[in-house]
Design a protein around this nucleic acid. Structure first.
Length: 865
RNA sequence: GCCGAAGUGGUGGAAUUGGUAGACACGCCAUCUUGAGGGGGUGGUGGGUAAUCCCCGUGGGGGUUCAAAUCCCCCCUUCGGCACCA
């Protein structure tokens, strides 16, 4: 054993050994209990970042722990390898996306190996490989057959910087692209033919199952529920005047239908233009609609935006009152929610109220309460609450909640609509006008129309010779040999679809593929997938709370229906780890600065470029643009992978944000050195010593240290189980501190040696999931031949953790006044008596009447007086 | 506006079937070791105070209780999600 802890040497040594022994390779073994631990796989952007280090360190602790616990642990890693950065690199530097991607993968694989994560590397794959995405094309065809994939012309979110379409989930609430460009000009609307996956068909199931995922963080489920956005209401048909056509609306307040005095349509609604045709309004309506369509959707639909609208010239009839209702086009009505048409009840909806006031439209109160008496002539705002119905024909006097039910029933009976449920969730637009993605297996024939590529002709391989220019059109469109093909039905000339699939399609089933990455007769080998799925523990960033996690849940249901998987939900337990943050320096003139561009002058920080004074910004997520990143590579070089892992795990609990601290890293390194020195000093005298068996009776220092050792085993085990990794490490630190001050260290007594030996062994074993190379090396120094990973996770001796004396706190009126140590065997009365005997207590209660004495066994005595 | 999470020393954070607030670590202080520096060992470190007495103290205010960081009510702040969703 080396006197000094040489991290580089040790880490290289053990990584080689693990590799050679294939220590983390797993196969399906029905005799063993499986445990599938998965971390979100990375996009191969070039280098790993601290977020990866943290995410994968957390996962690795659990994977190694479960393995030592005897589980058959699947812990795989792969690459989410399709996507735009590869294509952008091609545009900027002329390097082919495939070359760029595979080189990045090689580099990052090497970095992950240097971190010592316990992956079964034999299961690695890259999603940009045809052996992976070919199966996605098969899924697409099956979904197309079932109507779950379809094409429609629609308004889509278009990011001018990415030059592609975004799904609704990929547009942030401030109207920017989820990729977060430095110069974010916002996402605009564009009308395009697009492929969609019918996720809306699963809205109810996905929502219902939110209740059946107790292993998920509540906030993720809440976000998903919000996103699905279920509303219970009714559809009502309003006949157009002088026409057989009806306008269908969705409302959650069908109880107010008697108060509907006009109609509002979305600018995109087909009737908006047709109703005004040939009327005096035709021109102005057209102008209004055009203007709205051009306007930024986010701005148009912001709550603060002014209500704008225009009369179409058309009328419809309120089906319950036969009142004549003018039809307007209004900026706040959204085509993609409900039916794109809203019955306007100005008395009981604030938006309609404002709109009616602006256009001088009639108000009819239809809901009243006992307390307020609403008057249409004087009311200053809409009343949106519940009450009883008035001016509502046969429904008068009925409670508004009950009226909703009755009116829906009535509508149903009369064929005027009926109960409906509406969701906010839209279908998932998967078309991307990009090269670096999985081609959609569709052919367009002039004669036969849209034809799917026959299964036997799969895969549609992404051509490698292509010119990438970044014009906004898929580079595939200009590629004759790709586009021009024969129709599989009539053999006539035809063209291939040039859109590729959203990269979230790849990440929606990669976790299934890990069960059988080498399988080539189909996408998934049922037997193996059934053995491993579902994922027992999934770990990743909160930023995927909706996107990836919702898509994956949807995809799992689809694959289940197709018979490829047996589970409905892919992830049993989910841990969303916090971000890695560091303070930012921002100069008023020069923007964000690197830490070495800042100098300390007295108490104040100054910019080296312009000498302006700089305030230390708040902690922000590490990002290149904010110049506050720490490169893991540097950490591995200087401190080693184990120290880097140690810091990430110790500095904060997994689900919270981690604040970067250089001093904290030093502290972690110091702790490992401290453990190293301890074992270095002792290991010669411990070599042939074996720990005492369970149940042995000790006394004094021996008993004390053995007790601490076994309590630490208990604590660390429980803490890992509940992901309190920071406190698990604290517990080990405490044990180390105790060994340092223990008199047993210098004793030559055989029993003392055994107790010390056990304490040391346990420090190393308990540390092994956290700092595996370090632990392996010390384990070897303690005389073990085999990898520490082959050791059983230790149990604690229940006898060893028992006390025979305990500390009892004595309170007077709930305030701490004294402490006493008493034998554990004392009965309740005995404890009370002893507490009252205390000198200090005697003094304090002197002359007072003791009203009550409360005893909490093994904890405290509280004297009330 | 609605929903959710959080607020504890100089700092990161412990402790919630109500029962010693501040484990562990960073920083700081003292002391020992070393020729010095670094490193290391030991001890101390919430605030007030000469104090091992006592008082105050878990965002603020009230309450329940023998006892509240923990439970209840009101309020404040921060972060995240949703939001003209009919």
């Amino acid at each position: 054993m080396n006197q000094r802890y040489q991290h580089k040497e040790i880490e290289e040594k053990w990584q080689k050994i693990w590799d050679r022994q294939k220590l983390f390779k797993v196969t399906e073994d029905p005799t063993k209990k499986k445990y599938y631990l998965l971390e979100m796989f990375p996009y191969p952007s070039g280098k790993i970042h601290m977020g990866h280090v943290r995410n994968y360190s957390i996962g690795d602790v659990v994977a190694r722990y479960k393995k030592m616990k005897g589980f058959n642990v699947l812990h795989p890693m792969a690459w989410d390898a399709f996507g735009m950065p590869a294509e952008n690199a091609a545009i900027e530097h002329g390097v082919h996306p495939a070359k760029w991607t595979y080189e990045n993968i090689d580099y990052m694989r090497n970095q992950l190996k240097r971190m010592g994560f316990s992956y079964d590397w034999d299961r690695e794959f890259a999603t940009c490989d045809v052996s992976y995405y070919q199966w996605e094309q098969l899924f697409f065809l099956k979904m197309y057959e079932k109507g779950l994939a379809y094409k429609r012309r629609s308004f889509v979110n278009w990011c001018e910087i990415c030059k592609t379409v975004l799904a609704n989930e990929q547009v942030m609430s401030d109207g920017t692209c989820w990729r977060g460009h430095a110069d974010d000009s916002g996402v605009t609307q564009k009308e395009l033919d697009q492929w969609f996956f019918k996720i809306t068909e699963y809205a109810e199931e996905l929502l219902e199952w939110c209740e059946k995922l107790p292993g998920w963080p509540e906030r993720v489920l809440t976000m998903q529920r919000n996103w699905i956005g279920k509303s219970i209401g009714a559809e009502i048909h309003f006949p157009l005047e002088n026409s057989k056509e009806v306008i269908k609306v969705f409302t959650t307040r069908q109880d107010t239908v008697f108060g509907a005095t006009f109609m509002s349509l979305a600018p995109e609604h087909p009737l908006a233009l047709s109703l005004s045709k040939g009327t005096a309004q035709e021109q102005s309506v057209r102008e209004f609609v055009e203007r709205m369509r051009r306007q930024d959707k986010i701005k148009r639909t912001a709550e603060t935006a002014e209500k704008e609208g225009i009369f179409t010239g058309g009328y419809c009839l309120n089906p319950l009152t036969q009142a004549r209702m003018p039809i307007f086009v209004a900026n706040f009505v959204l085509m993609e929610y409900g039916t794109g048409a809203v019955m306007a009840v100005p008395t009981h909806d604030q938006r309609d109220f404002e709109f009616a006031k602006k256009f001088g439209l009639p108000l009819i109160v239809v809901v009243q309460t006992e307390d307020l008496t609403l008057d249409a002539n004087t009311m200053a705002e809409a009343y949106e609450g519940e009450g009883f119905l008035v001016n509502s024909g046969q429904f008068n006097g009925m409670d508004s909640v009950r009226a909703r039910e009755k009116i829906a029933q009535y509508l149903e009976e009369k064929g005027l609509g009926g109960s409906r449920i509406s969701y906010r969730l839209r279908d998932w637009g998967i078309s991307r006008q990009r090269y670096w993605g999985a081609p959609i297996p569709i052919i367009y024939c002039d004669r036969c129309g849209t034809v799917s590529v026959p299964e036997k002709d799969l895969p549609v391989v992404l051509p490698s010779h292509v010119e990438i220019t970044g014009t906004g059109q898929s580079p595939l469109t200009g590629l004759k040999e790709f586009v021009e093909t024969r129709c599989p039905q009539c053999n006539g000339p035809a063209q291939r679809e040039t859109d590729t699939m959203d990269t979230f399609v790849e990440s929606s089933w990669y976790f299934d593929r890990f069960a059988c990455p080498d399988y080539d007769k189909g996408p998934l080998e049922k037997k193996r997938v059934d053995y491993w799925m579902p994922v027992d523990q999934y770990i990743g960033g909160i930023e995927h709370a909706i996107l990836h996690l919702l898509y994956s849940r949807f995809f799992t249901r689809v694959l289940k229906e197709m018979g490829w998987v047996s589970v409905s939900e892919p992830f049993t337990n989910l841990l969303t780890q916090g971000m890695v943050c560091k303070e930012v320096y921002e100069c008023p003139k020069d923007g964000y600065l690197f830490p070495d561009e800042v100098t300390l002058q007295g108490e104040k920080l100054h910019c080296q470029k312009c000498d302006s004074q700089i305030s230390i910004g708040r902690l922000e997520k590490m990002s290149k643009s904010k110049k506050n990143v720490v490169d893991p590579e540097y950490l591995i070089e200087k401190y080693g992978a184990d120290t880097a892992r140690m810091f990430c795990l110790f500095a904060s609990p997994p689900e919270k944000d981690l604040d970067w601290s250089d001093q904290g890293v030093e502290g972690s390194a110091r702790f490992l050195n401290r453990v190293w020195r301890l074992i270095y000093e002792q290991h010669h005298h411990l070599l042939n010593i074996r720990p005492l068996p369970f149940g042995v009776v000790l006394a004094g220092d021996q008993k004390a240290l053995r007790q601490k050792t076994h309590r630490t085993i208990k604590k660390v085990t429980e803490d890992i189980e509940r992901f309190h990794l920071n406190t698990a490490i604290s517990a080990i630190m405490e044990l180390v501190n105790e060994i340092y001050v223990s008199a047993l260290k210098d004793s030559t007594d055989e029993r003392s040696r055994k107790v010390i030996r056990e304490a040391m062994e346990m420090v190393v074993v308990l540390l092994s999931p956290f700092v595996p190379h370090f632990a392996e090396e010390l384990w070897e120094a303690l005389g073990f031949q085999e990898s520490i990973m082959k050791t059983q996770w230790p149990d604690y001796d229940p006898d060893a953790i028992l006390e025979d004396e305990i500390l009892i706190v004595i309170q007077i009126n709930g305030r701490l006044r004294d402490r006493m140590t008493i034998p554990v065997s004392y009965g309740e009365e005995e404890v009370k008596v002893w507490a009252l005997k205390s000198e200090r207590i005697q003094k304090l209660v002197e002359g007072k009447e003791i009203k009550r004495v409360i005893l909490v066994p093994k904890k405290l005595v509280n004297i009330v007086c």
